[in-house]
């Protein structure tokens, strides 16, 4: 999904309209009053907690399979020892779901961090220097955006081989042009403002103006976009694994992979498809709600 320059500039403008409205205390108070943001934060909190405390929460070993209880077409459902039943290879479904949260969190956060870092550097350099540097950098971003996100990730993951790290890189690099365009758009708006003239008047260098004065003022739209992007990264990662390009290691449970592996059992054991499906849905929903809440809290005028 691409943001056009005009759109990026609009987003930047709208989240920047009222500098006073962005005081952390005010933002925090508004965030706490929004039911959507609270629900989102709760879902994200739950997701992060499950990922962090997976070894404590998982009742069984994720790799140990009890093949004696699984026959073709017969997968035991929930029981006292296995609250969500077993998967098609006789492994505890709940434990695998819990550890799957780890994979998703690691992929989501690190890929967005990677994309934000590289995209942030490209976007700020383009915005700071302008001229041909800006033109070349932005045209390069256009080329990357010409490939639909999932296909871009498919291409990179095929190149890097099936591992957690390559999924992270594939999705992270895909996010580079989005961040670069967003940040450059915001910088283009900011660099016309009075405080930039003031900084220039006292003799600050161009790069210092960008890093010390402009970038802190563009954090709001980047924060909103990053929260949204974590949800998007989890979705793309699930799609990649579903297409067989996820982490290959069977001891790393991943929701998209779990879904793909039990796809054939949709008719007899639909829970094996819908448990990981619900896990993906709820975690992405959490990040989307939180991102909406943040956007509204950072710019109350936008709120309807």
């Amino acid at each position: 999904m691409s943001l056009s320059d005009a759109e990026a500039r609009r987003v930047a403008l709208e989240t920047q309209r009222d500098d006073h409205a962005q005081r952390p205390g005010l933002v925090w108070r508004r965030l706490r009053r929004s039911p959507g943001a609270i629900a989102g934060a709760a879902l994200v909190g739950l997701f992060v907690a499950v990922a962090l405390f997976a070894p404590v929460l998982a009742p069984h070993d994720v790799s140990r399979s009890d093949l004696s209880r699984v026959r073709p077409g017969v997968v035991p459902g929930p029981s006292a020892a296995h609250p969500l039943g077993l998967d098609q290879q006789g492994r505890d479904e709940l434990s695998r779901l819990v550890y799957g949260a780890r994979s998703s969190l690691v992929i989501g956060v690190s890929s967005v961090a990677l994309g934000a870092l590289i995209g942030g550097i490209i976007g700020s350099v383009a915005g700071a220097f302008g001229g041909w540097v800006e033109t070349v950098a932005m045209r390069l971003m256009d080329v990357m955006l010409a490939i639909p996100g999932l296909l871009f990730a498919v291409a990179l993951a095929a190149l890097l081989g099936p591992s957690l790290l390559s999924v992270m890189i594939a999705i992270g690099v895909g996010g580079v042009p989005v961040v670069a365009r967003l940040l450059r758009g915001a910088i283009v708006v900011e660099r016309e403002k009075l405080y930039v003239d003031a900084a220039r008047a006292v003799g600050a260098r161009r790069w210092r103006i960008v890093t010390r004065h402009i970038l802190p003022n563009t954090l709001a739209p980047v924060l909103v976009a990053a929260t949204l992007a974590i949800g998007g990264a989890i979705l793309t990662a699930a799609g990649l694994s579903f297409l067989g390009l996820g982490p290959n290691d069977p001891s790393i449970p991943e929701w998209g992979k779990m879904l793909a592996e039990s796809e054939r059992l949709l008719e007899t054991s639909p829970q094996l498809v819908f448990f990981p499906g619900a896990a993906i849905l709820l975690s992405v929903l959490g990040f989307n709600l939180l991102s909406d809440g943040l956007r509204d809290a950072l710019d109350p005028k936008q709120r309807r």
Binding site: L266, V273, L285, N288
Partner: peptide, 22 residues
């Protein structure tokens, strides 16, 4: 719409297939 933007396409596809077909 929140559910719609959060659900992976293939999960929605499986859900529809399970309900309306299976």
């Amino acid at each position: 719409t929140l559910l719609g933007v959060s659900i992976p396409v293939f999960v929605l596809a499986f859900a529809l297939k399970y309900i309306f077909s299976v």
